[in-house]
Design a protein around this nucleic acid. Structure first.
Lengths: 192, 192
DNA sequence: GCAATTTTGTAACTCTAGTTCAAGAAAGGT
DNA sequence: ACCTTTCTTGAACTAGAGTTACAAAATTGC
């Protein structure tokens, strides 16, 4: 009944994600997208409507893909504090193994857009809330299991670790110095 | 011998700082600068050479002006832990009293440029290093005075608080919710 | 194979970014 | 008063952003 797309939209969103992740929203041009996705301008706009709409999809994709790894670790098994440590270590490792210094795309989006974009703001909040919720339930599990202080405020601790993770992303962007970053996990974990 | 400038360059840099602070580098247009500085395009480029050069001056100005307030608190008198608390509270208060959600311009610069701009990178590192150094010496003072554990690693704690401050800026940009942010100082301070 | 429909590639278009330039205006030294 | 220098204004310029338009091509159901 109709011609089928000559490219894989999912793969295209992945490619767009990479470009936006590296250059930010304002820093990305249609030409870069065309080059990276390997499709013509016409197909780009036909399939994705606008740069902004594509960015939204890319950010969603990032959230699904990258945040999922964090959540997976937090929702895993083993002592809660070790899971939290593994989560911090994951971010630390990602920050150090990031030659391009793209950081976390959610953090980048939060900083680039601030409160100036309802849609992006919503996506960012969802992503952060999801992380904080995973942290919180891991902490609560630890409290039930007895390896984390039962009197601690799990919500406050979760917000705090979320802050730490984002702080690490910022620091690593400015100065990806292993010596500076490596102690952060140990220090933060002392709170548990 | 020569005509004198019809505007105050210092005031112009201040105005430029505001624009860049609100919109980021890529998000700022020459027209916005012209409007905000109240001078013609010609004067702008005659006085400041380029958008990038003006941004550098604006970022330096920010560092001199805003970071100074942090340092001032840290270098003040009184028990070290109270100074650290005051510093965290300052950032928290700044984040909550920020309707535009511009956050910290140094944090924003770190995230926007990552490793892609030597000059900006250098400025950002200087600003962060300065903050970390102030944190460190405050902590060391507290250790000498006895109100902070002498066995703690002051450098690691300083890096950690720097991370926390930047994390707060990011969180506040995404969701300036007092309930979420207000507990962060208490939680972080528990490390001392 | 035909109709219907969608994709594709390319050109085109508008608008603005980022910068430069030319011509005149102010200031100071002499 | 003049000369030099620097500043100012505003137009002008190039390049590219972001998007749309269109004609040709491809696909599928029938």
């Amino acid at each position: 009944m109709a011609r089928t797309k000559g490219f894989d939209p999912d793969a295209a969103v992945d490619a767009a994600m990479d470009v936006f992740w590296s250059n930010g929203y304002a820093g990305t041009t249609p030409q870069q997208l065309v080059d990276a996705l390997g499709i013509g301008r016409g197909s780009l706009y036909n399939a994705f409507t606008s740069k902004h709409a594509l960015y939204e999809r890319a950010l969603r994709r990032y959230h699904e893909r990258e945040t999922a790894r964090l959540i997976e670790i937090l929702d895993g098994h083993g002592p809660a504090r070790e899971r939290i440590r593994a989560a911090v270590d994951l971010v630390l490792a990602a920050s150090l193994d990031d030659d391009e210094r793209r950081g976390c795309m959610v953090t980048n989006a939060a900083v680039e857009f601030g409160g100036r974009d309802e849609i992006v703001g919503h996506l960012v909040r969802r992503a952060l809330d999801r992380q904080q919720a995973a942290l919180k339930s891991t902490i609560e599990e630890g409290q039930r299991a007895g390896d984390i202080d039962r009197d601690a405020d799990a919500g406050a601790l979760a917000a705090f670790f979320l802050t730490t993770l984002n702080g690490i992303r910022v620091l690593a962007k400015a100065d990806p110095d292993p010596a500076r970053l490596s102690s952060l996990a140990d220090t933060a974990l002392r709170l548990l």
